[in-house]
């Protein structure tokens, strides 16, 4: 094996995200209580848990939409600190898809996708447009490029949001309940996009209750309650033989 090969294999197994004893408070409310998590490159992790358990806060800490107050978070070898410049750099490498899409309604679909590549990556208008069209084709809505987000269905908007994140060529993708705000008919089109992304080897952390998706693509499923991980396991074991009482109860409530 050549050196380059060795290096790339080493990189492939390198740690993408490392969280050590992360604590977070909202006022007096202790949301995250000592989160430890290592995510390898190319790993897909599904995080689930009851509402208010801290799962959204957890992934929002990874791109510092929330600041943690104790512990360390290292993303792609860089620790998250108060340094806003470094935070902006990390955010460029970490794509995020939100429950409510958060597309920019005053810009067209295409402008949504090209905005940050042009302004923060310094791409030319032409290069950014080509890239945006590539990813819009990939999420199968290139024909909507010149519409405004609110003219699209929820499912289409969420696919645009995914394309917008991909246009930054992120190393890691975070999904914060991407299908929770969608009409039932539109859940599948978004999940299909996420599955294809996972098959391409994208490092993903998904907060979702789509257990079918978790079974299909997750390397590990993590159950969080009260700001702590209760159980983390591969999906086969997690769904077939949950160990903790709390996990069993949760699964019995969402699966039928």
């Amino acid at each position: 094996m050549t050196d380059a090969n060795l290096r790339s294999r080493a990189a492939a197994h390198a740690v993408a995200i490392e969280m050590r004893d992360v604590h977070k408070w909202f006022g007096r409310f202790h949301v995250l209580r000592g989160i430890d998590l290592n995510v390898s490159r190319g790993e897909r992790i599904v995080v689930c848990g009851p509402s208010g358990s801290g799962k959204s806060t957890l992934i929002r800490c990874i791109n510092r939409l929330e600041t943690h107050q104790r512990g360390t978070i290292v993303v792609d070898g860089r620790e998250l600190t108060d340094d806003t410049k470094r935070t902006d750099e990390i955010r460029r490498d970490v794509g995020m898809v939100f429950q409510h899409f958060n597309l920019f309604p005053h810009l067209t679909v295409l402008e949504n996708c090209t905005l940050s590549p042009i302004w923060t990556l310094g791409k030319s208008q032409k290069a950014a447009t080509e890239m945006a069209m590539h990813f819009l084709r990939r999420v199968r809505i290139p024909e909507q490029a010149h519409k405004y987000p609110l003219q699209l269905s929820g499912g289409q908007q969420q696919r645009v949001a995914i394309a917008r994140a991909l246009c930054m060529s992120p190393k890691i993708m975070l999904f914060d309940e991407p299908t929770s705000a969608l009409d039932p008919e539109m859940v599948k089109e978004v999940l299909d996009t996420m599955v294809s992304l996972a098959k391409d080897g994208m490092t993903m952390i998904c907060v979702t209750h789509e257990m079918g998706f978790a079974r299909e693509v997750a390397d590990r499923v993590a159950f969080i309650d009260n700001g702590e991980f209760v159980e983390i396991n591969n999906p086969e074991e997690f769904f077939a033989h949950p160990k903790h009482e709390r996990t069993k109860l949760f699964l019995s409530q969402i699966l039928r």
């Binding site: 791109n63 939409l65 806003t84 902006d88 750099e89 955010r91 460029r92 970490v94 794509g95 995020m96 939100f98 409510h100 958060n102 597309l103 920019f104 905005l115 940050s116 302004w119 923060t120 917008r164 994140a165 930054m168």
Partner: peptide, 21 residues
């Protein structure tokens, strides 16, 4: 607030977020 978060998650700086979004 989601608009700010969307912009921040894309790595836009504070001033560009204000000006563009």
């Amino acid at each position: 607030r989601g608009q700010l978060e969307g912009a921040m998650a894309l790595g836009l700086t504070q001033s560009r977020m204000m000006r563009l979004i």
